[in-house]
Simulated scan of single mutants.
Amino acid sequence: MHSWEAIEKTLNFIEENLTGEIQTDTLADLACLSPFYYQRLFKRLVKKPVQEYIKLRRLAKAADILDNPECRIIDAAMECGFSSHAGFTRAFKEVYHITPEDYRKSSVMLNTFNKPEISMGYVLIDEGFPLITGNIILEIYRRTLTEPEIYLGYEGAVNISEQIPAGESTGIDVPGQLWQQFHDKKDDLAGLFQDNTELGMCYGADPGSGTFKYFAGGLAIPSDISTYTADGLTVQSLEAGEYIVCRVEAESFKELVTNALDQASRYLFSTWLPKHALTTRPFSAEKYFTADKDINSLEIWASPIDTIEKSS
Rank of each mutant, 00 (worst) to 15 (best):
V46F: 02
M1S: 01
D188V: 07
S226C: 08
I172N: 05
S265Y: 07
W272H: 07
V158T: 09
D195Q: 08
V248F: 10
T211M: 06
Q194V: 01
T24D: 02
V235N: 02
L273C: 13
L45W: 03
G171H: 13
W179I: 03
I244Q: 07
R57C: 05
G217Q: 02
G241T: 04
Q236A: 05
K213G: 08
Q263N: 12
D126C: 08
D231E: 13
Q194L: 10
E168S: 12
P222C: 08
E162G: 14
I137S: 13
D231G: 00
L152G: 14
Q236T: 13
I244V: 12
G153F: 05
K186Q: 12
G153P: 10
A216I: 05
A77Q: 12
T271E: 12
T197V: 11
L219A: 05
L199K: 00
G156K: 05
M109G: 10
T112D: 11
A62N: 03
D206Y: 03
M109I: 14
A230Q: 14
N111L: 06
A220C: 01
M201H: 09
G210I: 10
S161R: 06
K275G: 03
D188Q: 11
R266M: 09
N296C: 15
Y243F: 04
D64E: 13
T146F: 01
A28K: 06
P130L: 00
Q236P: 15
I132H: 15
P130W: 00
K61C: 09
S169Y: 13
D75P: 05
G191Y: 09
L30T: 03
P49Q: 10
G217M: 00
G200Q: 00
E5M: 06
S312V: 11
